[in-house]
Amino acid sequence: MAEDIGFLSRILTKRSVRRWAKLAKEATVADLRDLRKQRAQAREIKRHIDSLIFYADGRLALPAIGNQSFPKPHDADWSWRPELWSGPLPSPGIASVESKAMLGREATMFHDCARSEITLRQIRNVREADLAAFGVRLDVFRFDGSYLSLALDLPPEAAEGLKRRHLIRLDTILEMEKPIEIFARLNIKHGPNVEQVVRELPLHEKEVMVEFDLAYTKLNEKRVEKLWLDLIFEGPEMNQVTLRDLTFSRRPRAEL
């Protein structure tokens, strides 16, 4: 029975395709009254087809949604890819981004522009080389502020067992319309204090990676509460920055 239904469905689909191909071929000479009805039908069908293609592309395209696989040090005791790069957000983007606006549950944009001409949105990665399912695109047009940063809250697991002998590594893949400087600032709240370690991203290198060495901080290991990262964009006006991937890993420093 199922095979019969499938066979019948294929026949009906072929007939429908032939019908619409014939109507499309005759559209230049068709009666206007008939053409108006055909256009309405075609738009209704197209709406459903576009919806099917959209969801099919999202589910069938590689890399897979939710993928947490990425290269990391062999001795890493924690690793993580934020939700912006691993899963679809309920709201994929923000236009005219206000300061402290959040995209998802982990990312917050900060700036001091009087008038925002900034957009931030999640995009689907479909390149063969991409490991992350999604990317994040930042568009900046006119910029009258003095700072622009994207803050990412790290999960509680990043703080568990954190020691001064740890190295925290940040890897990213990004594209820019024109070169700018981007800084990464790791913030660690311990008790009433916050330790900060700043690194400039080596955008001229093939692999964009920085490590935050906690040995040079005054971290109180017994009072670590939370971690977050600020990506700071210098001179972002009239530029588009696409972060194809962004991952964290943590490993203990080798004993001397």
Results as ranks from 00 to 15, higher is better:
Glu195Ser: 13
Phe7Cys: 07
Arg127Ile: 03
Lys14Ile: 06
Ala21Gln: 13
Leu243Glu: 00
Lys100Leu: 15
Ile123Ser: 13
Gly145Asp: 08
Ala114Val: 04
Ile180Glu: 07
Glu207Tyr: 10
Leu170Pro: 01
Trp85Gly: 01
His111Gly: 01
Ser16Phe: 10
Trp20Met: 11
Trp85Met: 04
Asp230Leu: 07
Ala159Lys: 03
Leu52Glu: 11
Ala30Thr: 06
Arg36Cys: 08
His190Lys: 04
Arg19Ala: 09
Gly58Lys: 07
Arg251Thr: 05
Pro88Asn: 09
Ala21Phe: 08
Leu256Gln: 12
Asn220Met: 05
Leu152Trp: 06
Glu234His: 14
Gly135Tyr: 03
Ala158Met: 07
Leu120Lys: 02
Phe54Trp: 09
Ala133Gln: 02
Asp245Leu: 01
Arg105His: 14
Glu26His: 10
Arg10Pro: 00
Leu62Gln: 13
Arg19Gly: 00
Asp153Tyr: 03
Ala30Ile: 00
Ser16Gln: 10
His48Gly: 15
Leu167Phe: 15
Asn67Tyr: 03
Arg10Gln: 14
Asp213Pro: 07
Ile65Cys: 09
Gly161Glu: 12
Val208Trp: 00
Leu84Val: 03
Leu60Ser: 08
Ala42Arg: 02
Leu60Tyr: 12
Gly191Asn: 10
Leu170Arg: 00
Leu152Phe: 15
Ile65Phe: 03
Leu150Cys: 10
Glu3Arg: 07
Ser79Asp: 13
Glu44Met: 07
Arg59Lys: 12
Tyr55Ala: 05
Arg124Ile: 06
Glu98Thr: 05
Arg164Leu: 12
Pro202Thr: 01
Glu83Pro: 00
Asn220Arg: 08
Leu174Phe: 08
Arg244Asp: 04
Arg33Asp: 14
